[in-house]
Structure formats: structure tokens, C-alpha cells
Design a protein around this nucleic acid. Structure first.
Lengths: 149, 149
DNA sequence: ATTGGAAATGGATGAGATCGACAGAAAAAT
DNA sequence: ATTTTTCTGTCGATCTCATCCATTTCCAAT
């Protein structure tokens, strides 16, 4: 994990389809070396996977919401995590400090889909209390700022 | 945007390096057709970009926090958005309903880096009030659940 | 049925990923 | 200090795969 690796990560984060030759030129290394470095980054888990950044709106997921979850005292926390990991509407789920137990980011087709989701959490006895915050617009949704160009 | 396009998106979200032949087999289409569909999905903006999912810990970003921002009444909101869009520690920034103006997801090397960030927001007269929630662990951080296999 | 437009196919071509053999540098051991 | 080992890089060959184009098929509209 040196400066070159970080540079490669940055380039791939911007566009993971850049050719090895291209990346090699940017970091002043042969395509083979870049290939080997990427292979190692994947093997070591630094690169979790190659993926795409899709427009959720275009996919019919028009609503983005943050659901704060206060777990009920008798809730099966392991079951909750499994449920979250498998639910198609859940984009993120974090265990957090503060007044709430979990912060859950969900994407759904419409506002109307939120209530059934909360109802399901309640039905499964996970929920003691919750608060839902709707995102009106998104300023940004990527960690990596494109470096100087 | 039909069922096949959605299927392709799903496959690429899981692994954007799958070959066209491979994807073609999965959706029962020739590699050329898959290529053309992907080209159109990119052109129409449904696929925003090809990227990677990196392990932030390995990159030295050990801390994940949600900063709830209450914008001060005299804040230059456009300047705030520009600042958020450009700040390297900001992973997400959403305009939200409820008691707060914005929800900002930040990733930083250490807890100690949060205070200077807030100080900077204050210095720029953006901040009326704020609340910071630290993520202790992450259950999930991807929208797409891998379909049946 | 006929026609027009869009999407799919198959094959050719060139770009690029991948692999092995070798060289050089850095680190470790004596 | 010298030798040995290990690691990282380069080069060149090969083979896979993306890309492009000509043709065909499919579907919808009249």
C-alpha cells in the first residue's frame, strides 16, 4: 500500500474501465506491473469489487430516506442485522453512537413504500422507536474527489 | 429500460468486469447485443460510471460519521454545496426534511479530524448547529442484493 | 400483408489482458 | 561487507475479449 497503489485506486474509482496501459502511463509503470498491483489489491481485499454507479431514479428508486432505528430491548440483534443485510430496499445500515441504535439508508420506489417497511420492522419486534428523514436532493454521493487534472 | 437492462445492471453492480459473453449467457443475448445495451445505458446516464468498491479502512479512512447540519440563516447555501462537493472527506451530502438542513456522511483518518471539519464549517458561517453521529460498525453498504444463484 | 425502424446476430479485426521468463533492486542473513 | 533471498518490475508472446459492420430478424403501425 504505497503512493502508487493509492493513485491506482483513485483512478479506478473514477473509471474502473481504464486500460492497464493508460493507468500505467499515469503512474509511470508498465501495464504488467499495474496488473500485478491491481491483482494484489483485489486479493488483499483493499478493492472489494468492481462495480457500477447507477442512477437510482432511472431504476425506479425515486425515494431516498434515512431511518433511525431504536432497537427494542428484547430484539434479536443478529436477526435484525441479517434482515437488513438481505432487504432489497436497504442501501446502508450502520450501528451508531447516540440516541439511536442504527442508521439505515433506504431507497424505495415511492414514499408509500416506507410505511410497510417500518411495519415489517415492528412486526418482527425489532423496533422500539424510529424516525424517518427524507432526502430532498443529493449534493454528492461519492467519496473520491477527482484529483487535479 | 426493460427487464433485461435491469438484469444487466444487477450483474454489473455485482461485478463490472464480467465479460460480455458471460453476461450474454446470463440474459440469453449475444455479446454484441449486451455491448450495445450497456453502451446505451451509459449514454443515457442510467450507468453513471464504472467504479470500484474499496475498503476505506485499508485506505486509512478509519472513521465514518454522519454530521447533521443546521444551516445558519445567513449562510450562502450555494457556497455550502460547492464546499461539500469538493471536500475530500465528504462521502455524501443530502438536503433533508426534518429538524436539520443537511445530512453529511464523512470519512476521516481519525476522530480527531472531525473537529477541524466542523470548525471550518463554522468559520465559513455555514453552521448554526450540528450533531455528529459516529458509526461503530457497518452491517451493509450496498443497495444491490445479489439475486438468486 | 407491407413497410419502416429498432434490436439482435455473426464474423472479422484490433486492442488489451494475461502469463512466463528474466533482470534488477531491496531486504535479510551470515 | 558479502551473499542469499525475496520482491517488484520489464519485456515479449499469446490468447481472450471488446468493438465494429453488414446482414437478418423482430415488432409495430398502417
Amino acid at each position: 500500500m504505497d503512493e502508487i497503489d493509492r493513485k491506482i485506486i483513485g483512478i479506478l474509482a473514477q473509471d474502473s474501465r481504464r486500460s492497464l496501459t493508460d493507468i500505467g502511463a499515469a503512474v509511470e509503470l508498465s501495464p504488467s506491473s499495474v496488473n500485478e498491483r491491481i491483482r494484489r489489491l483485489v486479493a488483499s481485499g483493499v478493492i472489494r469489487r468492481f462495480t457500477i454507479d447507477a442512477d437510482h431514479r432511472a431504476l425506479g428508486l425515486d425515494v431516498l430516506a434515512f431511518v433511525w432505528v431504536g432497537l427494542s430491548p428484547d430484539a434479536d440483534e443478529e436477526a435484525f442485522r441479517t434482515f437488513m443485510a438481505g432487504h432489497p430496499s436497504v442501501a446502508e445500515c450502520h450501528h451508531v453512537t447516540g440516541a439511536w441504535s442504527y442508521c439505515v439508508k433506504v431507497r424505495m420506489p415511492s414514499l408509500g413504500d416506507i410505511e410497510p417497511f417500518l411495519a415489517e420492522l415492528k412486526r418482527r419486534r425489532f423496533l422500539a422507536r424510529s424516525e424517518t428523514v427524507i432526502a430532498l436532493s443529493t449534493v454528492r454521493e461519492t467519496q473520491f474527489t477527482s484529483p487535479e487534472r
